[in-house]
Design a protein around this nucleic acid. Structure first.
Lengths: 207, 207
DNA sequence: ATCGTTCCTTGACGATGTCAAGCCGTGCGT
DNA sequence: ACGCACGGCTTGACATCGTCAAGGAACGAT
């Protein structure tokens, strides 16, 4: 029950029980990609999903609830995709696995900017929401475990906790800049492979 | 001279020509601190500033223009404060100066979260705005120059461009997480000095 | 045939962003 | 002294928005 309930709670877009709900989430993602998450309007989402103007409020309770739903959706996706990336790179040496995880994290943000915004860059629904906090922790648990394992294997030294935070901060920083189109600003003459270059440099420097 | 002219141009809130404008900017900062930048409403700002409901549109043209004004205001402040921090730490060894600059950057974000949001975390007015882009570059020029100087002094090795980007990404990442209250989530048992600890670790690892 | 659920709509409310038009004091030219 | 342009702001109106209460249609179970 718990697993089904959790899956249902965190990925409501895939349950067939409420067709309109999934349509709304899809429409919202489209709109968020076009005009940014905090410019999406409930009524426009409903219009695009072919439903009445109050359908979003019905399903999500409020505008904030709708963004929250997108965030939970995205966090479940990120958890899956980071896990898959780890399996894909399981045969590589320790530091390469860290690079792969970091690159995958930023790539996810660029692949799903609307989701990423809702997940980590929309301060409003972030405060005191246990479900959301837990989902965020769960999505990153893989990275944390990887750091500890690579550390245990002796491929890196130092304090694993600090290193995990460094990687989180750096990945989130690059992802945020990239999603906002600010990397080019900051980077000046930076090519398209800046992201991997920075992450690689970062991991190479670890003690 | 340049500093005065730049401050006047980029900090219109301080010119006495339009008393209402400064009052609006102040009211907006207050409101943004309470409910987040993208939840501030023009009418509520006007109300709090004691002006009519259309005063903000008169001065800033639009909601987006008002956020842009807050961003420019903040960028000028950041430029000044980073510069001051550099002078304060000019006598320290190279790496310590990098730490001081990074810590000051994040401290600024925590001291002025509303400004920081408008400056670096509000994607809407960021696209294709030369003035804003230029102001962002100018605000960070000090950090870039510092990295190059410390590199020229031989205190760090590697590619200064990459290192500058690393520091930017990391600082922005920490600042974003901290402003959103997510650092505690990610950090688990992290104390209040996490920020300096991460930055210090980062700088210590530089080649 | 009636009940209960699920899924959604209708209608209304106050509040918002934006635009056009106008008001009013200060300073300046004449 | 007088007009007059200009900066600084207001008034009023409009479409649109988020939210809420109430209700209805489809549909399986009883």
């Amino acid at each position: 029950m718990t697993s089904t309930a959790a899956a249902t709670a965190s990925r409501p877009s895939s349950v067939p029980g409420a067709p309109g709900r999934a349509a709304l989430l899809r429409a919202m993602e489209d709109l968020a990609l076009e005009q940014g998450v905090n410019n999406v309007g409930l009524r426009e989402v409903a219009r695009r999903a072919g439903l009445s103007h109050a359908a979003p409020t019905h399903f999500f309770g409020s505008r904030e609830g709708m963004i929250r739903a997108l965030a939970l959706d995205g966090l479940a996706m990120l958890e899956d995709e980071l896990c898959a990336a780890q399996e894909r790179s399981a045969h590589l040496p320790g530091r390469e696995r860290l690079v792969a995880d970091g690159v995958e994290f930023v790539a996810f943000a660029l692949r799903h900017p609307a989701h990423y915004d809702a997940m980590f860059r929309t301060p409003t629904p972030a405060r005191g929401d246990d479900v959301l906090d837990r989902a965020r922790l769960a999505a990153l648990e893989g990275l944390r475990a990887l750091v500890e394992q690579v550390h245990a294997d002796g491929a890196i030294g130092g304090d694993p906790e600090t290193i995990y935070l460094q990687l989180c901060a750096m990945s989130h920083g690059i992802a945020s800049l990239a999603v906002d189109g600010l990397l080019h600003d900051f980077g000046g003459a930076a090519g398209p492979d800046v992201i991997e270059r920075i992450i690689r440099a970062q991991v190479a420097q670890l003690p």
